[in-house]
């Protein structure tokens, strides 16, 4: 098992190998992701029952929670990749960070936006400076920082290290987001889903939510593969295999 992991890790050093694997997985990720997400959203919008207090406004949860969940997961994945960049100098890890940072920024924005629109009818305000909302806003700025930094440094190696350090510094924000609702008094309610307890939500509501989360996860996988391919093509454009690929029209 360990041997297999090491071999896989070794292979990840080869962008050409990854390009091929990504091409094979992408149709599946896109198809299954779209089906799950659409099923979850249609189910949540039209078939899940209304909530006892919030009525229908709670249906925003089916996009708010997946966005917020992915926004944080992507950052954690970026932090793992940053460690790999700094310790093993694996370029594919740096390419991953570059490829997914804009996706993370968009999802963080969506989590904040849908939260604000949901907050108006529910809490009575678009925005409060409570710990959860503020730490999510900081996450958005961290993503912006990463995006700006990666285009600001021209040298590949120093850019990779600079970006990796910034990503790692920012990772302390993730536990703050997660536990903000427990450590401090916030307007945002505590987590509905906990690893150790059963969800404090009716099954006819959390099942479609789970579909939406899984679907968005797979769609992120598709986006990550696609965007990493772009980064690989940019970096490797002088190599034989990319030239052959370009000559064949990308297939």
């Amino acid at each position: 098992m360990w041997q297999f992991i090491r071999q896989l890790f070794h292979k990840f050093g080869s962008p050409k190998w990854f390009y091929g694997i990504a091409s094979k997985m992408m149709p599946w990720l896109l198809a299954i992701g779209l089906i799950l997400l659409l099923a979850g959203l249609v189910w949540g919008l039209a078939f899940a029952p209304a909530e006892r207090l919030q009525g229908n406004s709670y249906r925003i949860i089916f996009i708010h929670v997946p966005s917020a969940f992915l926004a944080q997961s992507i950052y954690i994945m970026m932090a793992v990749a940053a460690v790999v960049t700094l310790v093993w100098r694996m370029k594919l890890a740096d390419l991953f960070v570059r490829a997914v940072a804009p996706v993370g920024a968009v999802l963080t924005f969506l989590a904040l936006f849908t939260g604000a629109v949901w907050g108006k009818p529910t809490w009575g305000t678009w925005w409060v400076w409570d710990a959860r909302l503020t730490s999510m806003l900081i996450l958005l700025f961290l993503y912006f920082g990463v995006i700006v930094l990666m285009s600001a440094i021209a040298d590949e190696k120093s850019s990779a290290r600079g970006v990796a350090v910034l990503v790692l510094v920012g990772v302390v924000n993730i536990p703050i987001i997660k536990y903000s609702v427990e450590w401090w008094n916030t307007l945002h309610q505590p987590a509905t889903f906990k690893l150790t307890e059963k969800p404090s939500m009716a099954p006819e509501m959390w099942v479609p939510l789970l579909f939406a989360v899984l679907g968005l996860y797979l769609l992120f996988g598709w986006l990550a593969c696609l965007r990493m391919q772009t980064e690989i093509l940019k970096r490797e454009r002088r190599t034989r295999w990319v030239r052959d690929l370009a000559a064949a029209g990308g297939n």
Binding site: L41, L45, A50, G55, N56, S57, R59, I60, I63, H64, S67, L110, F113, T114, V117, W118, K120, P121
Partner: peptide, 16 residues
Amino acid sequence: VMGGHGPYVWTCYAVF
């Protein structure tokens, strides 16, 4: 109409 919450819900879904 979503019981009056339509604008909020549909705005979110459209932007998403």
